[in-house]
Amino acid sequence: MEQVAEAAPQTTRRRFYLTFIYGLWGVISAALAAPALIYLFLPPRVRRESDWVEAGDITRLQPKTPVEVVFRKNRVDGWKVSSEKQTAWVVKLSDQQVVAFGPQCTHLGCAYHWEERSSDFLCPCHSSVFSVDGKVVSGPAPRPLDRYDTKIENGKLLLGALREPGSQKS
């Protein structure tokens, strides 16, 4: 017992040092690691993808006659913003409803076109056929044509993100 009593001030001081050394280094490591993990793993604050791109005047569209529209859209890649050419097939289904289809066949991504004679979309690669409202008529295409979000402002058609049908926003 006597021995322990003698050693006590020495060991408590040592324990005090050790506690502080480990504690402070713990705090420093955490304060460096946490921001580093946040920096590496949290997604950047995105400039929100609410960009609507003007894609022409809808008053010129004839009902049920698709028109291929070319427009430029900004693509944000990290610190780079590049302007890209994109196309859409725009159809006026009724006075209230204008639809813009993505330009690629849903089978393997070939560019399809509008067949005047048969009044449907035909993909030249594997003969997938889509009706004017984008539904699959025949061929290997697994799902209807993708659609851009659309809205109309002052007679101008605005296009948003390209989505698969079903995930469509109303």
Binding site: P35, A36, I38, Y39, L42, P43, P44, R45, V46, R47, G78, W79, K80
Partner: peptide
């Protein structure tokens, strides 16, 4: 960070305004 003039500036602005924790870093 993109180490070329011009892009360097843009990427640093990207770090500071968009990357989470970038301003602190």
């Amino acid at each position: 960070y993109a180490p070329t003039p011009g892009d360097a500036y843009n990427s640093l602005r990207y770090i500071m305004t968009e990357v989470t924790g970038g301003r602190l870093m």
